[in-house]
Nucleic acid binder design. Structure first.
Lengths: 187, 187
DNA sequence: ATAGCCATGTAACCAGTTACATGATTGA
DNA sequence: TCAATCATGTAACTGGTTACATGGCTAT
């Protein structure tokens, strides 16, 4: 299970509470691994009883106790073992493609506007990735080199959005005008 | 839940048994929605008690009874309602990206060979998609026009593999030679 | 006031995976 | 004789989502 390892990766960089982690999941790492706060709290509990993380409780006025988690030596060992193990490619399950596959059963108007909706969403996501990329290139070199690895994953996100946008544009056009594709996908 | 709808889409094209469906899931539709036979049998049972499919039992010598399922009028109604409803983009959860994100915790050799492994897998998948594409373009026109929609989803698969290949090539190279990316992702 | 952030969790449910079970037929 | 394909299923488990619960602080 990779969520556990994603959490260990984040704690290895810097200790933090469940809330902290959920913030971090919403940012960088969230581009390729999402987790709700509910899941995070549960996994932290599990990681804790497995001895892979430890926590110290800080009392706070008017708020529940804050538990700051940190990775243990055992956790680091488990993490580096996982890091060097082969990882399966995730399976793709995409409802939009089922709808295109069965477009003859849909209202054409509504399918076209559905594709447009996804197109805008992917364009927005791409724009925000491009902003993050610009921020990365605006950095001076010591900090830039340090963020090299997260930036490589951002590049994956940028390509992913570009790729969806290209496919959605052509597919929407083909469906809207009831055309038939006339050539293979270029290399 | 889209598996139910994927099954309804397949049965709308042509009635079939659980086994038939699992074969079809392994082919075309499997590029964007996978299902094990266990899941299919369970969902058929559920769809049946919901009245969205019906079945007739055919006895077979030495084999369990074959149940041929077909979509009901109610099932068709449910399907066309689903077809015209908005669909969420699937969330991405990819362990390979976690490993790149945390590459400093891995053995460089082993990460590079992991990336190579994925590269070959994506290249093979692309080659098989390209074969399917060539078969599509080899068809004469009445049949080709009929397969237009599945072909559109195949195009998505081709792009997906191309895109992964491009990213894996550049990323493997950067990690193997400990380089830093020097320019944004091109448009 | 009201929304949004801070901050923690539990519990029920749903979808998908893995393990187990059975047994005939066909081709190498 | 061994593996693959045909053909059907049940049951336990895992990972993730949704719903529910609590309550203070801060900015508009």
């Amino acid at each position: 299970m990779s969520l556990k390892h994603a959490i260990l990766v984040l704690l290895e960089r810097e200790p933090g509470s469940g809330y902290d982690l959920s913030q971090r999941f919403a940012k960088g790492i969230g581009n390729f691994w999402q987790a709700s706060h509910q899941q995070i709290y549960q996994q932290l509990k599990a990681l804790n009883s497995a001895g892979l993380v430890s926590h110290c409780t800080q009392e706070q006025a008017g708020k529940p106790d804050r538990k700051e988690y940190q990775i243990t030596a055992q956790g680091k060992a488990a993490l580096s073992q996982w890091m060097n193990q082969p990882e399966k490619s995730p399976v793709v399950r995409d409802g939009v493609l089922i709808k295109v596959f069965a477009a003859h059963l849909a209202d054409r108007e509504s399918l076209v506007s559905e594709l447009s909706r996804h197109l805008s969403a992917h364009r927005e996501k791409l724009a925000s990735h491009r902003q993050a990329e610009a921020a990365y290139f605006a950095l001076a070199n010591p900090r830039r080199a340090k963020l090299r690895l997260p930036y490589l994953t951002l590049r994956r996100g940028i390509r992913y959005e570009q790729d969806w946008i290209a496919w959605l544009e052509e597919t929407r056009d083909i469906i809207a005008n009831d055309r038939v594709p006339d050539a293979p996908v270029p290399e």
